[in-house]
Structures are given as C-alpha cells and as structure tokens.
C-alpha cells in the first residue's frame, strides 16, 4: 500500500521564465474524493502560476473551512498559506494585504464558506475592492457534511437522496457584479482551457477579481437532476467568449463575422484576447452582463467565461492611501520620524 506522490517528473518537463518546472508549483497529494472538481481547479491554479512565472514565495494562499478550503494544501507548496476561521478568509486577506501589498493574494473558498457563513465578509471584501483573486469552488452542496443543499443550489435541483431544492439559489457572480467587483468570471472545473487563462487574467488584475467555478461534487451532487453535475454543466454551458491571456499585445489579424476579437489591456501591461461569441455582450458594460445573466437563467444556461471587467479599478490600498512599503520592512526611522514631524502634524490640526 502506498499513497505517495513520486518525486520524479517528466525529463522534458517545460520550464518557465524563472527556470522552474510545474513541480515547483504543485502541492501535496489531494485527500479529497477521487474525481472532485476541486482537484481540477487546484491543477488549474498550479498551471496558471507556473505559466505566469510567479515566484512561489510571493504568493499568499488563504482559505476558510470546507472541502474547497482544504485545497491550498494541494497546490503551491512553496507559497505562504493561511487556513482561517469559517467564512472569515476575507478579513485575514484584508489584513495581510494592507500589511504587505507586494504579495499576490489568492483566496480559495466554497459555496458554504462564501454564500452562507461568510456571506457578510464576502460582500464587504468586494465593495472594498481588495486587490486579490477570490476563487469559489462551487458545488452547490455541503460535501464535507454529507451533501446537504447549500445556498448556491439552484431552485429545482435534485440531490442524491432525491430531495428537490425549493429555495432560490444565490448567484455569486451577479452579487459580485452588483457589489462592485472589478473582475468577474464564471467557469467550470472540467474546462481547463477556459479556466487557466481566466485565473491568469484574474491574478494580473489590480482590484478584486472573482471567479465562480462550478465544481461537481462527485460523491454527493453528481446525480441525475442535479444542476451541478458534470453532465448537466457540460450540456448547459454557454461560453460568452473564448479567451487567451497574452503577456504582450499581438497584432490583431483576424475578424470573423460572428466572432469579434477584442484585446483588453490589464493594469500590468498584459492583455486578454477575447473572441466574443455573444455580439450583444460587452465585458466592460455592467448593464449588458446583468442582462445576459438574467436571460441565461431563464434559458437554464450557465454563462461562462469573462463576465465583467472594470479596468479603471482603484484597489483598496490606493483608495485609502496605505504605505507602499510592506510594514515588516519599515524601520524605527520611518515609524518614529521624530518631534519635528509630530510638530508639523499637530500644527496642521490647529
């Protein structure tokens, strides 16, 4: 019996700009159920960080409680991690971010952690536009406590025990857009081609990036009648666009009749290359996406891809004017500037 990840990797494993292979971004072997969508999301995060060549020690991964919140153990083993109280990851992320704005903040949460016990924290971190990537691994059930319906379970969705959910489900993306998130995307754990560029763009975005990833619970919510099963999501998946994340802008060479290629510039000079599949939708127009989400709900479609992007976003640190230097590198000289400075401040208040 052995359940150990071999240390060997492919002898021709590609290396990123830092000279690291993907192995440097992997985590421990998952203890989630075999086939859990969360593991695919962990793999997508691993790929995104590897491809972006982020230095692993520059990443802080934060989570709350739940199956999803266990996953930081399964990716980025060389990064910092904080497994917080249930639903309180946004507070920890906010504190950390204000203390050191040089890090990449990656929060991982679930539908219970964000839409139930942590709904309040979720709302406030959005409206403050904290510079972080917030990924919800959304399976519509409480997998860790045997699959009860969660707050994101869709109205009419049937659980494994045959029970039909009579309550309205919370649409986390609509809430995020409503509360002022500046990057909102929705994806599916079974579609890495879409998910990886979305994560890469989210990590490059300055401000609050939210990705709701539908992630089937193979053990409790992958049955017929569930709206979060592999089969259902594949059948009802409606991509708004296909997108590529481009480190440098390429020349626009194609323009098809029904596909509009659009380049969206990110804060750090990188680009998203969008192949729009829905002509009436514009990722920078809030109204068009709210409308598209409503229409999709009526048609039982799950809209995926980039939903909304505000490139004029001003992140929390800039909004409140925090110090640019990480607090842990401030010395006594900066913290105690002396009586002359104090006199100046006092004088300004007279």
């Amino acid at each position: 019996m052995s359940y150990i990840k071999p240390k060997f990797e492919h002898p021709r494993a590609p290396k990123n700009e830092l000279g690291f292979t993907r192995k440097e971004y992997e985590g421990s072997l998952s203890t989630l159920c075999a086939g859990c969508g969360h593991d695919s999301i962990s793999a997508a995060i691993t790929d995104a960080c590897f491809e972006l060549a982020i230095e692993p020690h520059k990443v802080a991964k934060l989570s709350g409680i739940g199956c999803s919140s266990k996953t930081p153990a399964y990716f980025l083993n060389n990064s910092h991690g904080f497994n917080s109280v249930h639903g309180r990851m946004p507070s920890v992320a906010t504190g950390a971010n204000l203390a050191n704005r040089d890090m990449v903040y990656l929060g991982v949460s679930g539908d219970g952690d964000s839409a139930s016990i942590g709904f309040g924290q979720f709302a406030h971190v959005i409206r403050r536009n904290l510079n972080m990537t917030y990924i919800v691994m959304n399976n519509g059930c409480y997998g860790l406590t045997k699959g009860q319906d969660s707050a994101t379970a869709d109205h009419g969705s049937k659980s494994k025990s045959g029970h039909v959910n009579n309550f309205e489900g919370i649409d986390l993306c609509a809430i995020a857009i409503e509360l002022g998130a500046t990057y909102v995307a929705q994806s599916f754990s079974g579609d890495k081609n879409q998910l990886i560029p979305l994560i890469k763009a989210a990590l490059s975005h300055s401000g609050f990036s939210f990705i709701n990833v539908i992630s089937p619970c193979v053990t409790f919510n992958n049955n017929l009648g569930s709206t979060k099963s592999y089969d259902y999501v594949r059948e009802h998946n409606e991509a708004l666009s296909t997108l590529d994340f481009v480190p440098v802008k390429e020349e626009i060479v194609t323009k098809y009749d029904d596909i509009e290629v659009k380049f969206v510039e990110m804060h750090d000079g990188t680009y998203i290359k969008l192949n729009k599949l829905h002509p009436e939708w514009n990722p920078e127009d809030k109204l068009s996406i709210i409308n598209a989400l409503q229409v999709a709900r009526q048609k039982d479609e799950i809209l995926t891809g980039l939903l909304y992007l505000d490139n004029n976003s001003i992140e929390l640190n800039d909004l409140i004017g925090t110090v640019k230097t990480p607090l842990n590198t401030l010395t006594e000289k900066e913290l105690c500037p002396g009586s002359v400075v104090l006199d100046g401040i006092n004088a300004s208040l007279r």
């Binding site: 990840k5 071999p6 240390k7 060997f8 990797e9 492919h10 494993a13 993907r22 072997l29 998952s30 075999a34 086939g35 859990c36 969508g37 593991d39 695919s40 962990s42 793999a43 754990s189 079974g190 890495k192 089937p216 193979v218 992958n222 592999y230 089969d231």
Partner: peptide, 13 residues
C-alpha cells in the same frame, strides 16, 4: 466522466 483527475495527478504529465 472526464473529471481530469488522472491528468491532474499524473506525476509525469
């Protein structure tokens, strides 16, 4: 069921 679990875990990709 194409959950990608095998692809994600394979140490030699």
């Amino acid at each position: 069921i194409e959950c990608d679990a095998c692809m994600d875990v394979c140490p030699t990709q």
